[in-house]
Nucleic acid binder design. Structure first.
Lengths: 216, 216
DNA sequence: TATTGTGAAATTCTTCACAGCC
DNA sequence: GGCTGTGAAGAATTTCACAATA
């Protein structure tokens, strides 16, 4: 990189044209850094690669899309790299998330304590079952889905977790998008159709299992 | 493909050197086929591609690694293609699976009815909490983890689902591998280190969310 | 006629290998 | 001396485009 990088400092945070596959690995790097023993202050790309089963060259190249975070001779200072990754991924703040569906899975998600330290908190939950209205898990209130659009739009929530049956997932997704949601974590085992500007991340355990049985 | 394909009929099922990324898409194709209305008997690669947000060329090329399943002019017969995909992925039978960890998430997994039709059933569950021993969800018995290795080895279980805290996940994974498990669906938010011959599929909702926040 | 299956081309992604720097 | 950052090379993946054919 030539001296232009001094002028371009603004751009380091969000350079254009970073491949999606690279962005997809950043959360893995961040997670690995968070699991390191306190006393370790620095890590080389080689060590991080071994932890993750990834080549050191790939880690260095991935990071180089966003800036120069390492020191020749000694590697990456862990606190600093973590902070940088959190900034890049925008998880240096806490995002409010809406949960749709408070069945068994939804309740497990409500009880899960792991989101906080990764940049998220469940702000509100929605369900169709009147028995659940007003109840709350972990201080999170459960509202009727009929109020979903209004609540999400008014509170400007951008992220939703969908934990409902496949049969209604697309309909609910449409409504979420309409209300302004731009990122959906979808637990329903069905491909959701959404506009360009909305992202969907699918979680389907059976897909994972079927992936592996091929090789058994 | 020349006339050799007649002799090689045996190999169509498991041709060598199919890229992992191709195998990874097969479960998506299978899932999409399963969600089609009963009355639809055939589908073109173009239609299937639109459902999945994938190019038709990619679908055709992916399938061509395993055989010729379509008909020029009319596309793929759905029942037939589904059957073929199930065979290729080896989910034309039911795999018994061990679940480790019966916390909130583990219980949601036990209650989940969706595995059956995708080729899997939870055969047994393990936990450390004596309060849970002997109880059963959906007729699945909960045993102490101390009996895990023995049970898995004796019943020759090859697949396990890990739904336990990160702190103990690696230890349990080592034990599972030792007992003969060759595929692990890991819900603990930590990269597991396993030998070559064992596959791990990671499910971590926070990774999915962090993936998307980059683009918000 | 419509759509598959597939070599070849184009593109994307990963690894190599080393100058530069701490 | 050891490790990063990075062009260039190499490998993998996707798309193109069209002959073959139901």
């Amino acid at each position: 990189m030539d001296s232009a990088n001094i002028r371009d400092r603004r751009k380091i945070q969000k350079p254009m044209g970073v491949p999606e596959i690279v962005v997809g690995r950043l959360p893995l790097y961040l997670r690995a850094l968070s699991h390191l023993p306190e006393e370790v202050k620095a890590i080389t790309s080689d060590e991080l690669g071994n932890l993750l089963g990834i080549s050191s060259a790939q880690i260095r190249k991935d990071l180089s899309y966003f800036g120069e975070f390492g020191k020749q001779g000694s590697g990456y200072e862990i606190d600093y790299l973590r902070q940088q990754l959190q900034q890049i991924l925008q998880v240096d703040k806490q995002w409010p998330v809406a949960l749709v569906g408070v069945g068994d899975l939804g309740q497990a998600i409500l009880s899960y304590g792991g989101f906080q330290e990764r940049g998220f908190y469940i702000d509100v939950a929605f369900d169709v079952d009147p028995q659940k209205f007003g109840k709350s898990f972990n201080d999170i209130q459960i509202l009727p889905v009929s109020q979903m659009s209004k609540f999400i739009a008014e509170h400007e929530l951008l992220i939703a977790i969908v934990a409902i049956p496949s049969s209604v997932a697309q309909m609910v997704a449409d409504e979420l998008v309409q209300a302004g949601v731009r990122a959906i974590l979808n637990y329903a085992p069905v491909t959701l159709n959404v506009p360009e500007h909305v992202r969907v991340y699918h979680i389907d355990p059976a897909i994972g299992l079927q992936n592996m049985t091929y090789y058994l």
